[in-house]
Design a binder for these strands. Structure first.
Length: 568
RNA sequence: CGGAGUGUAGCGCAGUCUGGUAGCGCACCUGGUUUGGGACCAGGGGGUCGAAGGUUCGAGUCCUUUCACUCCGACCA
């Protein structure tokens, strides 16, 4: 491609609404263009090329693993979502609209329903299983706060795959195969990543893993062990039980006046005990389908923090929101002095596993300015893991020290089971001619998000540094001064010769001066460049490696074979 | 949804306090010079100042309403 014919509107100035390196460089480099609507972007020729290259890496590896590509309708009938029970649960993120006949539709944010519908219409026998179908298509999610360019757009390109099996064991086999396939994809794209255990979120099902591209700008906090390969999203991370060295309070059963003890620290110093022996009771309003809601109490040790996603899962709610003091009072609860032990009738209580049958605990008295001591925590509660793992906690696998790091969620694989096949009636006939729901897995990759992730991990202060398999072109050739006939002639010759070798070349034949062209090259970030400049008079040209801006002088006669050797 | 901002040429901004002919830089077009780190000279095109209503002889500027976008938080495969 000749640069003079390519639409690449690079800019010197940074758009004022971009803060992240990937967002800034993708805009400045003329890869994408803001549409004006929040979280909506156009892909310009360069961005589209990168997108296609990333897409083809994904496709190649999936096809090699036996998956089959399909393409599902982007507009999907609401009735399918009602069938699966997600029409409500998915909430406002789901863009709903009506056609001229008042039929309801949604723009697909994910396509479990559509794919299950496809399969239930065409697969009837165990002989047709297993099956792994995927598509690489647009998704639309009406995010509350889209941001950071391609990192969190409302419309984005996603690879979503779905597998169908006759039994659980075969689904797990496929799940492992997809994990390996994803590792190959991310490795080919040149990304440093970590596979971590994750919460399943709105998709449902059990056992899911996220592929986190490691970057400080990532929106997810992940917990990793340095001693072994354990890693988990903070929402799903677990730890080894954390014993307490401090002595038990041994206070006996008593009701104590405790003014000015609104925090755990104040309470701990009031009784002069370790917060381990205090019960922290957090009230949240849990929201369910059809507008139903209730106040739920979550109890855990004073030394621990509540992990809201775990809490939400424990009561199978759609969402947890804060409760005001007035609402608490109405429900018969004294804010700041609540306890799992004397909750009013009808208020559900969830107790953290570490508190089960704990003795000698200090709880609120559910009365302003009073606590009770010497409590044993037992009763008809829901028990669950509610704890947010902290840095320095012990790894559940090897006991090593855990720490936090940041990641960009670029892939997520789920073991779904029959979460969708059952309600949607996606069944097959087994060897005995008996109808069984198919066991499913689902596998996603944020393809457009990967562009942002690659740049977050591979850039410098001057611009993008694309990896080999993601780059918009393999090589950039600059004719420093196109009025110099020798320079131009060599450029043209090299451009033709390397193209014939199958190298995708961007040939900079623009009239601009050296400096301007160099800035564009650095911004666009093609992995390698050949610069034909003044030293051609001495028979020399430069070979540049973008990562580190390493320049090597090469004789003009040998440059073609030199490039071939470096790139192929 | 809570908090904070911003809307003026394709992009980045000034002008708004104190009402009086719509400005600057980049980009773009024409001609010329220049060609190793975002060149220079000369000339030129491009705006219903986010929208609606109001006050006024006169509104980018004052008042009211509204919309959009951005940032922090909440939220989020």
């Amino acid at each position: 491609m000749r640069f003079s014919r390519l639409l690449v509107p690079t800019t010197k100035e940074t758009p004022n609404d971009a803060t992240l390196a990937s967002h800034i460089f993708l805009l400045r480099g003329g890869f994408i263009q803001s549409v004006g609507g929040s979280g909506l972007y156009n892909f310009l020729p360069l961005g589209k090329k990168v997108l296609d290259r990333v897409r083809s890496v994904v496709k190649e590896e999936l096809d090699a693993a036996g998956c089959q590509e399909v393409s599902l309708s982007f507009v999907t009938p609401a009735s399918l979502w009602e069938e699966s029970g997600r029409y409500e649960k998915y909430g406002k993120e789901l863009l709903r609209f009506k056609d001229r006949k008042e039929n309801e539709f949604v723009l697909g944010p994910t396509h479990e329903e559509m794919m299950v519908n496809l399969v239930r219409q065409s697969v009837k026998s165990y002989k047709q299983l297993p099956l792994n179908l995927y598509q690489i298509n647009l998704k639309f999610r009406d995010e509350i706060r889209p941001r950071f360019g391609l990192m969190r757009g409302r419309e984005f390109l996603m690879k979503d795959g779905y597998s169908f099996h006759a039994d659980e064991a075969d689904m797990k086999r496929e799940f492992d195969l997809m994990e390996e396939t994803y590792k190959k994809i991310f490795t080919r794209l040149g990304l440093a990543f970590r596979v971590v255990e994750a919460d399943s979120g709105a998709i449902g099902g059990s056992g899911s893993k996220e592929f986190m591209v490691l970057a400080d700008s990532g929106e997810d906090t992940i917990v990793v062990c340095d001693a072994c390969d354990y890693g988990a999203n903070i929402e799903a991370a677990v730890r080894q039980e954390k014993p307490c060295d401090a002595p038990e309070p041994r206070l006996g059963k008593e009701k104590v006046h405790t003014p000015n003890t609104s925090t755990m620290e104040e309470l701990a110093s009031f009784f002069d005990v370790d917060p381990y022996y205090l019960v922290k009771t957090v009230a949240m309003r849990a929201l369910y389908d059809e507008g139903r809601s209730e106040i739920v109490l979550f109890a855990l040790r004073g030394s621990d923090e509540l992990q809201e996603v775990k809490a939400c899962n424990a009561v199978d709610a759609n969402e947890l929101v804060d409760v005001s003091e007035e609402e608490l009072a109405q429900a018969g609860l004294a804010a700041g002095f609540m306890s799992p032990l004397n909750a009013p009738k009808g208020v559900r209580v969830v107790v953290d596993n570490t508190l089960k049958d704990a003795t000698d605990m200090i709880c609120g008295a559910n009365e302003k300015e009073y606590h009770t001591t010497g409590n044993t925590i037992s009763g008809d509660f829901i028990y669950a893991d509610l704890v947010a793992v902290q840095e320095g906690d012990s790894c559940p696998h090897c006991g090593g020290s855990l720490r936090y790091t940041k990641g960009i969620e670029a892939g997520h694989i789920f073991q779904l089971g029959t979460r969708y096949s059952e309600p949607l009636g996606c069944t097959f006939l087994d060897e005995n001619g008996k109808a069984q729901p198919m066991v499913m897995g689902t596998y996603g990759i944020g393809v457009s998000r990967l562009l942002a992730a690659i740049i977050e991990q591979h850039h410098d202060e001057k611009g993008c540094i694309w990896t080999k398999e993601s780059a918009p072109f393999d090589l950039y050739i600059m004719v420093s001064n196109i009025k110099d006939e020798a320079q131009l002639a060599l450029g043209e010759k090299l451009y033709e010769a390397l193209r014939l070798k199958g190298i995708d070349v961007l040939f900079d034949d623009r009239k601009d001066r050296f400096g301007a062209k160099m800035k564009d090259y650095e911004l666009i970030g093609i992995p390698h460049a050949v610069i034909i400049g003044k030293k051609l008079a001495e028979g020399l040209v430069e070979f540049v490696t973008r990562d580190g801006m390493i320049k090597e002088e090469v004789s003009a006669e040998e440059i073609a074979s030199f490039v071939e050797e470096k790139l192929c």
